[in-house]
Write a protein that binds this DNA or RNA. Structure first.
Lengths: 153, 153
DNA sequence: GGTAAATAGTACTAAAATAGTCCTCTTTCA
DNA sequence: TGAAAGAGGACTATTTTAGTACTATTTACC
């Protein structure tokens, strides 16, 4: 549940690779080799990320891709938005869609708020954070209970 | 992205209905009528919820379903777990599964931590909270912002 | 004891989302 | 002008999700 798609996950791997490969342009082929992902997949991801503005591209023989801004300026939420479209935890909270149950539905509003909260939390996590497995992450907090993201390993 | 399935969403609607219909048993037919959902769907949901222990059932001619415990004791995370299985935001963080990229993957650990944090946050939200659409809800806030919980009803 | 009203369990089908691949076009550099 | 690279789109297979149907079992009540 509450899963991001595999492609989005791969997307973060690709972005992480770009982040760690300096400020020059890296070709899709290079990124694929470095990450172990298939070239067609990497290529597709980079195209989408470019279109979303997270990545800059250069065509031509020495072209390639690089982050459009510092890794600290790219949030997890932005990555997800770029690769999966706008966030919404339930179907009926997406777009302006009205569901048939609106009149009797007692829980929709709350899901929307939960959604917003998760989204905001993901906005606080940068690509740089995703890379730093060891450093402390921002904490989520619900109600009065602080929730810390536990270190693993 | 980060979506719960429509059935899970419906599941909360069904549970909310049970919560608001007192302590007696309500039949699937009654719940379907009250929520506007289809009977086969409601029936399937209630069966799953019973199997997961969130709902108690009674067979026979005056049978039906009711919450197995107070609505405040049922969390959103439990509902999601019951209807969609264990939470994991990425594929590779599910079960003990090892993905091919493990060696080169730089972001997996962090996703797992994010996942855990979201899960814990959802654990703090009760079915009773889901129902309180109009009154101020516990706010899902981030980091340092103060929180107010207002209970109504 | 029979009958009606319920749930339990399982299996199946249809539809939708996802993943992955391939092909052709355009741009740029040497 | 040729090679290397991205851009864009189309297509297919797979998997997940949703919804439905059918049969068996249990219980209350007459």
């Amino acid at each position: 549940m509450l899963r991001i798609s595999r492609l989005t996950d791969y997307g973060t791997v690709v972005l992480a690779q770009l982040a760690s490969s300096g400020s020059g342009f890296a070709s899709a082929t290079e990124v694929a080799a470095a990450t172990g992902l298939g070239l067609p997949t990497v290529s597709k991801l980079l195209k989408n990320l470019t279109r979303s503005g997270l990545v800059d591209s250069a065509r031509g023989s020495h072209g390639g891709y690089r982050l459009s801004r510092d890794a600290r300026e790219i949030s997890a939420a932005q990555v997800i938005d770029a690769l999966e479209g706008p966030v919404s935890i339930t179907d009926c909270s997406a777009h302006d869609r009205h569901c048939d149950l609106e009149a009797t539905c007692s829980v929709g509003g709350t899901w929307q708020r939960i959604n917003l909260a998760i989204r905001q939390a993901l906005d606080e996590i940068s690509l740089a954070d995703l890379l730093r497995t060891k450093s402390p992450l921002p904490r989520f907090r619900f109600a009065s209970t602080p929730i810390s993201i536990e270190r693993k390993r």
